[in-house]
Design a protein around this nucleic acid. Structure first.
Lengths: 364, 364
DNA sequence: ACTAATAATCGAAACGTTTCGATTCATGGG
DNA sequence: CCCATGAATCGAAACGTTTCGATTATTAGT
């Protein structure tokens, strides 16, 4: 393998001259520059990354920590990871993936051994050890997510609390007063995934404040959840909910939507549906559903940007929190609450076209 | 950051003694060993990876190359990648992901700059530049896949040619003579994905040899493929195919199976279904289908094993080819060819009456 | 008690860069 | 013609390890 010495020899100059040609930190005559560049090209010289790093140069490597855990949503998982990798690459950084179960140890290993320039934390939970221990890394560190303890780590996330408040308000403004709430998977609450908890809490709290009556689903498990029962119970209520807010994954939501339609309800005329803190690939949905989505691309872009800026300007970012406004995607599954449904369940739901027409006329 | 000098000072020994304690390459008295280990622990010392690498030590980093390309199957993509990362980690290696579009340049960069100890190539195509250029890397390199030119690179893959032959034989042995063949996505043939071509070629060739009549689908595009037409055309043939071999993805296959069942055909009594070179997540399938699957886990395990062995024993593996026997998963969708169907299509297809009606409908 | 072997430890060179300070050479102002 | 300035280049130190050869301390064999 050709080293800088070989280049120097081939070009008939000293080692330091070659280095200065490459870094441009001192002026070099154009004649010499030419000779050196030609030699570099001839020999296919590429500087040794380790030697450079030893001299305090940047590696242009970023560690991404995403420990594998059970019930992990593969799609969602790779969405964040791929986005981050892509963003990093666009900025000239390579990505070292850490999936080990003892994440803190892994991060400490790669930072202390000076293998990476910075760290990005994915899939962080409400009480995340990786974030809590960030001070130990001695390298810039950014998390996507907002754990309780985050004073030693920069955090970037969607403002899920605002999302909860806003969703309650949104339905209220449309006249809904009875709202069904479909929980996320139980396992996500159990592992204290921040976004799940933040949204639910804020949503329920706001609902209470403004007088939205909530019918919350039982625990959800993708494999065993009984959608028919949930929908049955929901429609049996009096007064019947006129809107459904879902935190659940695309599969369960799709089944639920299908069941609602099978029960003769039209979306959004008879029932509004809103999915929050989710990532609906359009494809498998029976009917498009409006949502306040995850935004892996935007989040990763912001996080990676601030991480790289911290790295390159060698300035700390510990404790910085960036919450971005949730976005609303209108797929037409939200509408004004139907008048009839609030008063009594003994009326036909929507099975008859007439009744809906009548309602429509009455509302004019 | 504590360095080896600090440890030496704290333990009251020389730098080289500390190094020997760590590497165990010379005998050190247990008293000294104790002092040194305590100092290391106190200071939280972790050796600088760059300095070690400069002395010719291994990095324990493996580059995984998986260029992003259009129409990439996210699920399948991450399956291989995650498996590899997992296997690497289990062997004490971290993983550097290269997704850039100019893959050869990226690999050359990380190998020449001595950033990684070896390279794993994923998603390789029949004429894969990364494999063809493997000689330039000067580091051990293993590909999952078997391109035409592979003399400078070790290759690990399922024996898709054997899979093709065996599938033809399997159906023949069950008495099938008329077989429909559902192609993979056109884009996969177009980019010369090796497995797709190898399987199809071997399957069709063997079919010709033993006298299997093949009805091949038109070009498939996940977004636009007309499943109804394909199934309609297939059932309209005389004699009607008694088996379906599919190279297509799970979505199209599922639709096809659904259409077949809707047409009144029972699987496997009226028609056998076999999926080859696929990765059927059970969940979304309307009916389980027997398959000769991809085996990401096995493949990655073998590939990573031989890569790491080459790295650690510093011995070349260029040109080594490992083809593993395809596996057959019986999900009960294969059966002996129905007697009637072979002779004439004027006979009822299934045991039932409405099948003719449906045939008629489909032909409209 | 003396030598030979072995165990334990140390000092210094080497790995491939970057960068500081020193040196040389040309240029222009007085 | 001399000195000061700046451009172009060089030599050597430094980064944090590993490892070689040398040195000293210990043990065993006679």
């Amino acid at each position: 393998m050709a080293g800088i010495k070989d280049v120097a020899k081939a070009a008939g100059v000293s080692v330091s001259t070659v280095s200065y040609v490459l870094s441009g930190k001192r002026s070099i005559s154009s004649k010499t520059t030419g000779k050196v560049l030609r030699a570099i090209d001839d020999l296919g010289y590429i500087p040794d990354a380790s030697a450079q790093k030893m001299r305090g140069q940047l590696n242009h490597i970023i560690a991404i920590s995403e420990p594998m855990h059970e019930g992990m949503n593969q799609m969602q998982y790779s969405a964040y990871f791929m986005q981050s990798a892509w963003q990093a690459r666009a900025a000239g950084y390579d990505v070292l993936l850490l999936t080990g179960l003892d994440a803190v140890a892994d991060i400490e290993r790669v930072t202390h051994s000076n293998l990476v320039d910075g760290v990005l934390l994915l899939d962080v939970e409400e009480r995340d050890a990786r974030v809590a221990q960030a001070a130990r890394y001695h390298k810039p560190c950014v998390a996507i997510g907002l754990p309780k303890i985050h004073k030693d780590c920069a955090c970037v996330d969607i403002d899920f609390a605002k999302m909860g408040t806003r969703s309650a308000d949104r339905l209220f403004a449309l006249g809904h007063r009875q709202v069904a709430f479909l929980r996320a998977q139980e396992i996500d609450y159990a592992r204290h995934a921040g976004y799940v908890l933040l949204f639910r809490e804020a949503f329920l709290e706001r609902a209470r404040q403004i007088g939205l009556r909530i019918f919350e689903s039982g625990p959800v498990d993708n494999a065993t959840f009984d959608v028919r029962k949930f929908v049955g119970d929901m429609l049996a209520r009096n007064p019947r909910p006129t809107a459904l807010v879902s935190q659940s994954g695309v599969n369960i939501l799709n089944l639920t939507v299908t069941a609602l339609m099978a029960a003769g309800l039209k979306i959004p005329d008879d029932i509004s549906v809103l999915s929050c803190g989710t990532f609906l690939c359009e494809e498998p949905m029976r009917r498009p559903v409006s949502e306040e989505p995850f935004e892996p691309e935007r989040l990763c872009s912001i996080a990676m940007g601030s991480l790289i800026s911290a790295i390159e300007h060698r300035q700390g970012i510990a404790g910085e929190v960036t919450l971005i406004d949730p976005k609303f995607i209108d797929r037409g599954s939200l509408a004004v609450a139907p008048k009839g449904a609030e008063i009594s369940t003994s009326r036909p739901i929507a099975s008859a076209r007439k009744s809906r027409n009548l309602e429509g006329e009455l509302m004019n």
